[in-house]
Design a protein around this nucleic acid. Structure first.
Lengths: 337, 337
DNA sequence: TTGTATGCGTTATCAG
DNA sequence: CTGATAACGCATACAA
């Protein structure tokens, strides 16, 4: 059995209230008794029981982090940064990997809320759908604790969105490619999550602005079944048999790498005959040859801002409901521009 | 304010004890009252307060997961699998990213133990050092809760190790390469964690068994400063100026990919002039060209076994202190054998 | 089968 | 500055 506040109070010869006060850094304690208590605590190695503490404080000093799949290279980085930032603000992280199914997500949210977390962070734009019904669980959650959303926007009381302006990033990337003289651009994506939709919007806007004809035909969704690199490459090869393009913009780096591999295995020279841009600026960009130009969405800055906002909200301060950063095109060797 | 067991007992017209009983599936409850209570709970959306529950049960149904860096591609996968397995056994995961510093690790352990977790999982062999002093914190922890170690072995009461036989895997991989006629093999590594040491041992054993002369000269530690892909490639290039080798075995896939990039950028043909083997069988193996042969350490199986063992221990069953799996060489295009 | 009363380890509100 | 004492929400031994 570990020691309680009573044991310490006995040994120190003071009441439990005093112990509690020194523990919580109350100013109204005499220096000498404070020191005495501290010494006893040190000597006997007492640590407060956080469950009991939670009952009194009505806070577990814990934040629930939900993400679909923490092994996803992008989400993993986000989770890492979040945990680090929370930690340094005195909060712990309860991690839940929900998968991509809506009902599962709802269940996990209920579960995690019953743990009386102080806040909820939804990592990844896949938590926000297109219909009201799909997003009801976010609203429900926000009635209990502040909800933070990374990489998607959702306007509602007590929910805060931190994201990168994917539409604008994609618009600028596409415009750059168009500006370099490439007009037939293949747009490769796999999911239409919130950010997936924004990216596609940005691509479309740029193509429209450039009065490119028939660009819709070069918007290509890679089916979910294509889960391996080989499968994706094969899919692109197949697509290329009936379409012509001299640029590829992908909604993430995996697809970008697949595009590079498609080119190299078909003796298409990059960037002379084909330019490629990926998204996320992950380590994968450095692994392929040539290295992949990619859009960086400032994840580290976003996560820092998110935690800062959350801590502010938890401390009762007024905080911005929506914080938007802008992405940056990181130029590597799959583009000439 | 969320509802308590008292609110529900009022609405249902029974005592709180009865509510508690149906909540905990006690058999001594009449079917009809059980149903009545369930209905009320359903209707009002009551969820028990887990902090209060923890005080009675002395368990938070939570496991602490410690890892150095959950954004590391290998550790992220491990964390993901662990969380999933724990979840399906009714446990939640408290994630802590400790970094690689020893003191920091110790502090995090203290912190997480004060949260009264039911068990501790140390993810990654970097948690086990070579000296007794370095590992004392593991022993201390094991006095409070069962400690599981993934990817390293540490023999002590109430600590359980689940790992892949890295030494043997590396031995076999090296032997394969030697068998294909390549005798001058560059061994590339960056850290000497528990598994790092085992891998190196396996390499050495194979080279010794083959009576290869001077193999020690081709054991090369990539300095920590080389954090980017370019830096690693440059380092290999530099090393190659004063050494000759026709095979490279790397202690992880990043180094393996760097080896591939070194070769392609220097017009060294793979696998004709140079064979390469990586470690971890991560997605990176598919991103480089040619694709990287790598050693798979059966992470999914390991994590499943770990959680199974942990749950067994928590339920008071006798469980194996050490579970060892063997790795598998996944052949891709950087090797001929 | 159900209800009552007590304990779990803290925090917080009062008095002193 | 310090000490009683009442919450906090639930589990459970003991009664009924």
């Amino acid at each position: 059995m570990s020691l309680t506040i009573y044991d310490i109070s006995q040994k120190a010869g003071v009441s439990i209230a005093t112990i509690s006060r020194v523990l919580n850094g109350s100013p109204k304690v005499k220096e000498s008794t404070k020191k005495k208590v501290m010494d006893i605590i040190e000597e006997y190695g007492y640590t407060p029981n956080s469950s009991a503490r939670a009952m009194g404080l009505k806070s577990m000093k814990t934040i629930g982090i939900l993400c679909a799949d923490s092994s996803d290279i992008f989400l993993a980085k986000a989770v890492y940064y979040l945990e680090q930032n929370l930690q340094s603000n005195g909060y712990e992280s309860l991690l839940c990997c929900t998968g991509y199914n809506l009902d599962a997500k709802k269940n996990y949210v209920d579960l995690i809320l019953s743990k009386k977390v102080d806040g909820l962070i939804l990592v990844g734009s896949n938590f926000i759908g297109t219909t009201e019904d799909e997003n009801q669980y976010v609203i429900d959650s926000s009635e209990k604790v502040p909800v933070m959303i990374l990489n998607a926007s959702f306007r509602h009381d007590n929910v805060y969105s931190i994201l990168c302006d994917d539409m604008n990033s994609m618009y600028r990337a596409t415009t750059s490619m168009l500006g370099s003289g490439i007009e037939d651009i293949l747009y490769l994506y796999n999911s239409l999550s919130y950010s997936g939709r924004k990216k596609l919007d940005g691509f479309r806007m740029a193509m429209q602005g450039h009065h490119s004809p028939n660009y819709e035909e070069l918007i290509c969704q890679v089916p979910e079944e294509c889960s391996s690199m080989n499968a994706i490459v094969a899919y692109i090869e197949d697509f290329a048999r009936s379409h012509t393009f001299h640029g590829i913009i992908a909604s993430d780096d995996i697809l970008g790498v697949a595009a590079v591999k498609y080119a190299t295995s078909n003796n298409i020279s990059i960037p002379d005959e084909l330019s490629v841009i990926g998204y996320n600026n992950s380590i994968l960009t450095e692994c392929c040859t040539p290295t992949l130009t990619s859009i960086d969405n400032q994840l580290e800055i976003q996560t820092r801002s998110l935690v800062k906002t959350l801590i502010g909200v938890l401390n009762g301060r007024e905080m911005p409901q929506k914080t938007v950063f802008s992405g940056a095109l990181i130029k590597r060797n799959t583009t000439k521009f």
